[in-house]
Computed example of a mutant assay.
Amino acid sequence: MSYRAFRIHRSKTGEHSAAMEQRELTDPAEGEILIRTRFSSVNYKDALAGTGSGKILRDFPLTGGIDSCGDVIQSRDDRFKEGDQVIVTGYGLSFTHDGGYAEYLRVPADWAVPLPDNLGPYQAMALGTAGFTAALALHRMESNGQQPEMGPILVTGATGGVGSLAVNLFHGAGYAVTAVTGKDDQHDYLKLIGASQVLSRDELQLGSHPLEKARWGGAVDNVGGETLAGLTRTIKPWGSIAAIGLAAGIELNTTVMPFILRGVSLLGINSADCPHALRSKIWQRLATDLHPKHLDDIVDRVIHLEQLPEVFDEMLKGEVRGRILVQTMMD
């Protein structure tokens, strides 16, 4: 039996190519499950991998897509049976293992999380890695002592997938949220999904002294580089910064002053390798107390596998708002 998949190749001379291909379905090995996928999603990492703009894949060729949700049709693991619905995000998907841009996906059962009762496949992938990452940031910050009364949470890169969901999740958890964006035409959207204040990127003045006026209770940073460095100088005492992205660069030029004089914490958020027990807990929270109230507003559109290349280009140009879902199986 054959199925469709979006495959990414690199030639011996380093040339990138990617396209839809027909693949032959194989049975799962011991400890694996075979999933008939329903939905995936498009993340910035997927766009980098799918266009060859970033060094994401470690093995070639591979099927792209770091997110997937669907139905188990074969299981070689006692924890799952035919008909179970599961979520798979991160781990080795579209890195060292075939990913979710296919009609079928075979993965180690250890990577799968049972779909919570209050989520369907569409909602699960509307959240996907982006929603999981935002929720993991909230969880880690609150575990580190973050509370709404400490002051507003600043969210950078707020119109992206992680940013949009962070705005909505923190708002739903009782925090005042200040959203930062370079898209001046998206201020109304950010207010709709929960921002109490929206700043244009040029309005975000972070200064250059080792310590500046403390303005924010905490922050979720999707940008990195100088923005992240500036945030360390402007967070209130005992606040946390969740570091998620690197769109503005990988270097971090700051001092120890915010950490030793204000007790500021810098928390790294790695959703791909999150321990399974914590991963399951976060997905349960996303289905219950953390479920976004504006998820439908955050979903921009649903596409098919054949439309991935054009969406990748849009995303890398900064033209995408919120989340884009991929319907992988045509019923």
Rank of each mutant, 00 (worst) to 15 (best):
D71H: 10
G160M: 08
G70V: 04
A112T: 03
G161E: 09
K45D: 05
G52D: 10
D59W: 01
G90Y: 01
G50W: 05
D27E: 11
I66H: 10
L62F: 10
G92I: 02
T37V: 15
G83N: 09
Y91K: 14
Y122A: 10
V88T: 08
Q74D: 02
S41T: 07
Y122H: 12
V155L: 06
L105K: 04
T129A: 12
K45N: 06
A135Y: 12
D98V: 07
T51S: 12
A135N: 14
M141Q: 14
V88D: 03
T159G: 06
T37P: 00
P148R: 10
A47N: 07
M125Y: 02
P114K: 14
R79P: 03
L57V: 03
Y122V: 02
E142N: 08
I87S: 01
Q147E: 15
V42R: 02
V113S: 02
P61M: 07
L119M: 09
G92Q: 12
L119S: 02
F132N: 11
A130T: 13
Q123R: 10
I153C: 06
S68D: 07
G145D: 05
P28Y: 07
V72S: 00
V155H: 14
K45G: 00
A158S: 12
L115D: 10
P152F: 00
R79W: 10
A137L: 06
G151F: 03
V107I: 13
I66F: 11
R79G: 11
L136R: 09
G128I: 04
Y44N: 04
E82W: 11
G157Y: 10
A126E: 04
D46K: 11
Y104S: 01
D46L: 05
T159H: 08
S68H: 03
L138Y: 09
G120W: 06
A29N: 12
A49F: 05
V86Q: 02
K55H: 13
G31R: 07
E149K: 12
G52I: 13
R79N: 14
A126H: 08
A112M: 01
I56S: 06
N118E: 14
G128C: 04
D84G: 09
V88E: 03
F95I: 11
L115T: 04
G151W: 00
A130E: 09
L127I: 06
I33L: 04
G157M: 03
G52T: 12
V113D: 02
I56Q: 05
K45F: 00
L57W: 07
Q85Y: 04
R36L: 14
V72F: 01
E142Y: 01
A124C: 06
G120D: 15
A130D: 08
G160L: 08
D110V: 09
P148I: 05
M150E: 09
M125F: 09
G90F: 01
I35W: 04
T37D: 05
L119Y: 04
L119Q: 03
Q74K: 12
A29Y: 00
R79H: 14
V42M: 11
G160T: 10
G160E: 01
F60N: 00
R58N: 12
T156Q: 06
R76T: 05
G100K: 02
W111D: 03
V155E: 13
L34W: 07
L138G: 04
K55M: 09
I73H: 00
F60I: 06
D78E: 15
A29D: 11
D59N: 12
D46F: 05
A130W: 01
G70L: 07
R36A: 11
S143D: 12
G157C: 09
G145L: 06
I87V: 14
T51Q: 09
T63G: 11
S53V: 03
E149W: 09
